[in-house]
C-alpha cells in the first residue's frame, strides 16, 4: 500500500469520527467548522504529498499544462450551461498519472479558472471536489474498470461534484443543518448537475479512450526507468535495460 493510500484512508477514518462526534454534540457552527476542517486537512495531506514526494520538473510542468488546458477547455463550452470538460480531463489524468497528479490537476484547475472567472467561497469546495475526482479516478485502472465503467464513474461525479460544491451554501447560509435542508439545497441544483453528468458521459464516451491513449503514450515516452545490472558496472548503454515506467 502506497503512502498516499494510507493518508487517504486515515483522512477518511478521521472524517467519519469527526462526523460522529459532531452529530452527537452538534450545533449550527460546529457543522460548518467541522466540514471546513475536514476539507482543509484532506487537501493539506494531498498538497503535502505533492510537495514532499519524488517529483521532477516533468511532472510539475505536466500538471501545470494539464491544469491550464482543463481551465481553458471550459471556454468553447461556455454557451452550454454546466457542461464542463475539465471533469473528464481530470478523470483521465487521475486514471493514467495516479492520485497525486489527478488531485493537483483538479485543485489547480479550480484555482486557475477562478482567477479569470472570479474567486468566491466556492473556490475551496471546487478545488476539493475536482481534486477528489482525480484521486478516485486513479483507483479505476487498479479495479480493471474500463470504458463503460469510466462513463458511469463520470456520471456519478457529475452529481457528486454539484453536491460537494453546494455545501458552501448549506454550511454558511442555511439554518438549521438538518437532513431536509441539506436535501433541498442539493435538490435545487439537480438540473445543472444532470447536465454536468450528461456532459461527462459524452466526453468520456467520445474522447475518453483517445485521451487515455494520448496520456499513456506521453507517459511511456518520457517516464522511463533505467535498471542497471548490479554484478557488472555498465560500460555502455547496451548494458542497461530500459523499461517504460508502466510496465
Amino acid at each position: 500500500m502506497k503512502k498516499i493510500h494510507i493518508f487517504a484512508l486515515l483522512a477518511s477514518i478521521i472524517t467519519i469520527i469527526v462526523f460522529i462526534i459532531i452529530s452527537k454534540n452538534g450545533s449550527y457552527d460546529t457543522w460548518s467548522i467541522g466540514t471546513l476542517l475536514i476539507i482543509v486537512t484532506t487537501m493539506g495531506i494531498m498538497f503535502f504529498q505533492f510537495e514532499k514526494g519524488k517529483i521532477t520538473s516533468k511532472e510539475i510542468s505536466l500538471i501545470a499544462i494539464l491544469s491550464g488546458v482543463s481551465a481553458i477547455s471550459r471556454v468553447p463550452f461556455a454557451a452550454i450551461p454546466s457542461v464542463q470538460p475539465c471533469t473528464y480531463i481530470i478523470i483521465c489524468t487521475g486514471y493514467v498519472f495516479g492520485p497525486v497528479a489527478g488531485f493537483m490537476v483538479g485543485a489547480t484547475t479550480a484555482l486557475v479558472s477562478n482567477i479569470f472567472l472570479g474567486h468566491g467561497p466556492w473556490t475551496i469546495f471546487q478545488m476539493f471536489a475536482w481534486g477528489i475526482v482525480g484521486v478516485t479516478a486513479s483507483i479505476l485502472p487498479k479495479l480493471k474498470i474500463k470504458s463503460a465503467g469510466v462513463i458511469i464513474f463520470g456520471i456519478a461525479w457529475g452529481y457528486l461534484f454539484g453536491w460537494i460544491t453546494n455545501l458552501w451554501i448549506w454550511l454558511a447560509y442555511v439554518y438549521p443543518h438538518t437532513f431536509s435542508t441539506l436535501l433541498v439545497t442539493m435538490g435545487a441544483s439537480l438540473g445543472f448537475d444532470t447536465l454536468h453528468a450528461l456532459g461527462n458521459a459524452i466526453f468520456l464516451a467520445v474522447l475518453g479512450e483517445k485521451t487515455i491513449t494520448i496520456f499513456q503514450r506521453y507517459k511511456n515516452r518520457f517516464h522511463i526507468k533505467y535498471r542497471f545490472k548490479i554484478e557488472k558496472e555498465p560500460s555502455s548503454m547496451s548494458d542497461c535495460t530500459i523499461e517504460p515506467s508502466n510496465s
Partner: peptide, 17 residues
C-alpha cells in the same frame, strides 16, 4: 511546488488560448 505549478499554468493560458 504548488505555487510554481499554479504560476506555470497561468503563464501558459495565453499560449493555450
Amino acid at each position: 511546488r504548488t505555487v510554481l505549478t499554479t504560476s506555470i499554468a497561468i503563464r501558459f493560458i495565453p499560449c493555450l488560448f
